[in-house]
Simulated scan of single mutants.
Amino acid sequence: MAARQPARRGRGERAGLSRQQVLDAALELVDRSGLKALTMRSLGEELGVEAMTLYHYVPNKDALLDGLVEQVFTTASPAMDGSADWRTALHAYATALRAGLLRHAALLPLAASRPAVTPATLDEVEAGLRLLTASGFSLDRALHVLNSLAVFVIGHATAEARIVVAPDEAGGADWLATLAADRYPLLIRAAREGVGVDDGERFAFALDALLLGFEALRTA
C-alpha cells in the first residue's frame, strides 16, 4: 500500500508559524536588503509560505511595520518595573536602544515616523510612566521625558548611521587640519588631538546631560 502523501497547504492556511517568527524573518530580510525589499510576497518566500498565509499572524503591512518597530524598542529596553532608580533605568534603556537602532539601521526611518501602537510597545511606555511618576514626575513631564529621550536616541543614531566622513573628506580630521590656523585654531587643535569625534562618547555625554536636566526639573 502506497504511503499517504501529506495534504498540501492551501492559500491562506496556517503554516505552524508564530507572529514572533514572522517578525524575526522580516527583520532579517530588512537587515539584509533594506525596507524597500520588504513585501508580504518577499517575506512569504523568506518563510517558504504563500503571502496570504502571513495574514494569520499580521493583519496587514502596517501591522508588520509596527511589529518591526516593536522588535527594536522592546528587545532593546530593560524592564522598568519600578525596582530600579529611574536614572539608571533610563540610561540603560537609551544605551540599549541606540545599540539596537545601529544594529538594525534600516529601521531608523520607521522608528522616527511610527508611534508606539502595539501592545508590547505600549506596555514598555506604561512601565516607564509608572517608574517616572512613582519617582516624583508629574504625568505630563513623565511623558515629556520618555518622548524627549526617544527622539534624542533616534536622532543621534540616525546621524551616526548616515554621516560617515573619511579623514581626508570635507569635514574629516585631516581636512580640518588644513584650515587656516589663525582663523580656526581650536578646530585645528581638536582635529590634531582627535577629540570630540567619538560617537559613543558624545552620546554618553549628551545622555548624562539630559538625565541631569530631567532630575533638576523632576519636582520643580
Rank of each mutant, 00 (worst) to 15 (best):
L64P: 07
L54H: 04
S83D: 05
L107V: 08
F137V: 02
E124V: 11
L38H: 12
R218F: 07
S42A: 04
L122P: 03
F152T: 10
L131N: 04
M40K: 07
S77Y: 10
G213V: 04
L64I: 07
T75L: 01
L108I: 08
R11G: 15
G200A: 14
Q5K: 11
D198M: 06
V72Q: 05
A25K: 04
G213P: 01
L43V: 07
V197G: 14
P109V: 10
V72L: 11
T118F: 03
A209N: 12
A120R: 12
V117W: 04
A7V: 11
A15G: 10
R8S: 14
T219P: 06
V145T: 09
A106V: 07
R114S: 02
R114P: 05
R11V: 04
V49A: 02
L132V: 01
A177H: 06
I163W: 13
G136K: 01
L23Y: 15
T53C: 10
T39M: 03
R41W: 02
A209F: 13
Y184V: 05
F137P: 09
T133R: 04
A26R: 03
H104E: 06
V49L: 00
L110V: 01
D199N: 15
D140A: 15
D208A: 12
F214V: 00
A105V: 01
S135E: 02
D31I: 09
A180N: 15
A7M: 05
A37M: 08
L97M: 02
V165G: 15
A116C: 13
V165I: 11
L97E: 06
Y93T: 11
A181H: 15
A2T: 15
V195M: 02
L97S: 13
R8F: 13
A157G: 14
T118Y: 00
L64N: 09
L210M: 05
A190E: 00
E201C: 13
K36V: 13
A99Y: 01
S83V: 12
D140W: 08
L54P: 03
D85Q: 03
D62A: 06
H144T: 13
R192S: 12
A180C: 15
A26Q: 07
